[in-house]
Simulated assay, not measured.
Amino acid sequence: MIGLDVIGIRLVSPEDPPVLLLQEEGGTRCLPVWIGTQEAAAIASALEGELPARPMTHDLLAALLVMIRPEGGEVLITGIEEGVYQARLQLGDVSIDARPSDCVAAALRLEWPIRCPRELMDQVGVEVSEGAPDEVEAFKAFLDSVNADDFEDENP
């Protein structure tokens, strides 16, 4: 398993869904994960360190996870099936199936690690170099030209 850092949320265009970018720790590849607008807002607010006046859904989830497993847990982006990423909240010996966006929103609030199998990154990771404007533009062009169906598993 390799660690993943949340780079942020990107909008390719107003009519397309937001893209969550997860970059391999110490590397230059990203997993682009298409997510819903509500989840994107929850992740963005966690990245900005915003605290709502009243707990939102992901804040409630985080509070419950702390009650269930005070010693912490982790998020595992486990694979991709038919263009849809699969994820799990790992609480010690207990593993809970969940959407990657919900897992990441909770992990950011709890400061839990996010990981994925190296094979997944090898399969669908996109190479991106920090600080190289032409490569960043190439990645943006890549995002403009693909959709979630392009990441379907070729070996079901």
Rank of each mutant, 00 (worst) to 15 (best):
I7C: 12
A41P: 00
L65K: 00
S129G: 07
A148L: 07
F142E: 03
E71W: 06
P55I: 08
V136H: 11
G79C: 05
T78G: 14
Q86L: 13
I114W: 04
A41D: 11
V66N: 05
E82F: 01
L61H: 04
V146F: 00
D144V: 09
V84L: 13
A98C: 14
G27L: 05
D144L: 13
P18H: 05
K140H: 11
P117E: 06
D59Y: 06
A87L: 02
V104L: 01
V146P: 02
S95E: 11
L51R: 15
V146C: 01
C116N: 08
A98Y: 01
T57A: 15
E15R: 15
C30Y: 10
P52G: 14
F139C: 10
G83H: 02
D97P: 09
G27Y: 00
V19N: 08
Q90H: 06
V33D: 05
S145R: 15
S13D: 13
E111P: 00
L64A: 11
A44Q: 14
I77M: 05
R99W: 00
L31H: 11
A106I: 03
E25A: 15
P55W: 07
A138N: 09
M67E: 12
L76N: 01
L91C: 06
L60Y: 10
A141Q: 14
T57D: 03
G79A: 11
D144S: 15
A46M: 09
L11N: 13
R99Q: 06
D122K: 12
A105W: 01
E152T: 13
E81C: 07
L91G: 02
S13N: 13
P32L: 05
A141F: 00
V136T: 12
E135Q: 15
Y85T: 08
S45G: 03
L51M: 13
E48M: 10
Q23A: 15
I96K: 02
P55Q: 07
L76G: 00
V146R: 15
E130W: 12
E82W: 00
R99P: 00
E25D: 12
D122M: 06
P70E: 07
T28K: 14
T37I: 11
P14Q: 06
P55T: 07
Y85D: 07
R118T: 09
L20C: 02
E24M: 07
V19F: 05
L120R: 03
A87P: 04
F142D: 02
L65R: 01
P17V: 06
Y85C: 07
E39L: 09
L47K: 13
L22S: 07
P55L: 06
P70S: 10
P32G: 09
D16R: 15
Q123T: 11
Q23M: 14
R109F: 08
E71P: 02
E137N: 12
Q38V: 10
P117M: 05
Y85M: 09
G92S: 06
V104I: 11
G49Y: 09
A62S: 13
A132W: 09
G73R: 01
V126M: 13
L64G: 03
E127H: 14
R118Y: 05
D102C: 07
L51T: 15
W112N: 01
E81F: 01
A105T: 01
E111C: 13
P17R: 08
G79E: 07
P18Y: 03
L143V: 01
F142N: 05
